Computed example of a mutant assay.
Amino acid sequence: MTWHRNPLCGFDLETTGVDPETSRIVTGCAVRFGGGQPSTARSWVVDPGVEIPDEATAIHGWTSGAARSAGRPAAESVEEITAALAEAADAGLPVVAMNAQFDLTLLDREARRYGILPLFDRAVPCVIDPKVLDKKVDRFRRGGRTLTDLCRHYVVQLDEAHTAEADAVAACAVTWKLANRYQWLKRLDLADLHEQQVHWAREQAEGLRDHFARTDGKQELAASVRLDWPLVPAPRAGVSL
């Protein structure tokens, strides 16, 4: 049986910002998807311990007051999220995350912030990123590449975009559609698929970096493009997160 017929572990975070080095988790979800069984999800609301900027609230809907009231302490939640993903990886489930580099790097930094053993020190997850896959199989397609864009293109329902559970489920559904449409993807075993994505993601990031470098007004963005996938290595000791 090919990997896309077995369960997937969808993962998504909603956060305080767009920098994985400094942003904090507001909500998270790990969902078991597929394998011939109904989806089951475990979700977290987190008190991030900092104010949530208005621009982040405009995306996911959580205000600082609401997160403080409904959220659990960040350290407890980060430990549970990390443990849930490690358990899934140990069970052989791939971790599916849209723009995995961001979510997995941010989770890593949150773990280090609270003295928690990070995911990649607990397990060796095979990661699947529908954003990387889509750019590989349909490189020259015009238009956006957000999760909403991919759901529209691959005909996947997404009713509550920017809620962690809906986005985690949608990432899995898009991945399933990709594997079903481009059947050579599902013929790769998970370890090979993971390694191939390391190379594809690097090529894609290099292309973006080069685009910024030659585009007037965007040259300064080139230096911010990271080539690592699915995890940006943590800063050296002594460098503040």
Results as ranks from 00 to 15, higher is better:
73 P>C: 09
77 S>L: 06
88 A>H: 07
78 V>K: 03
103 D>E: 13
114 Y>T: 03
80 E>K: 12
93 L>F: 02
77 S>T: 11
102 F>M: 08
71 G>E: 05
94 P>M: 00
70 A>F: 12
60 H>S: 09
67 A>S: 11
66 A>R: 15
69 S>I: 07
97 A>E: 01
106 L>R: 03
92 G>Y: 00
88 A>S: 13
76 E>N: 13
61 G>I: 14
71 G>R: 11
59 I>H: 06
59 I>G: 07
81 I>S: 10
56 A>T: 09
108 D>N: 15
111 A>M: 04
112 R>I: 09
86 A>F: 04
88 A>P: 09
78 V>E: 03
79 E>D: 13
85 L>V: 04
92 G>F: 00
105 T>L: 09
93 L>R: 04
64 S>R: 12
76 E>A: 14
70 A>M: 15
111 A>L: 04
78 V>I: 15
74 A>E: 14
79 E>G: 07
73 P>Q: 11
106 L>N: 02
58 A>M: 11
71 G>F: 05
87 E>W: 05
94 P>G: 00
111 A>K: 01
77 S>F: 00
90 D>T: 05
111 A>Q: 05
108 D>K: 09
78 V>F: 02
72 R>I: 08
56 A>C: 10
84 A>V: 02
100 A>I: 01
107 L>A: 09
84 A>N: 09
67 A>H: 02
74 A>D: 08
74 A>I: 01
66 A>G: 12
69 S>A: 15
63 T>F: 12
67 A>C: 07
94 P>V: 01
90 D>A: 14
96 V>S: 05
70 A>G: 09
76 E>K: 11
96 V>Q: 06
69 S>F: 13
72 R>T: 11
82 T>V: 09
85 L>F: 02
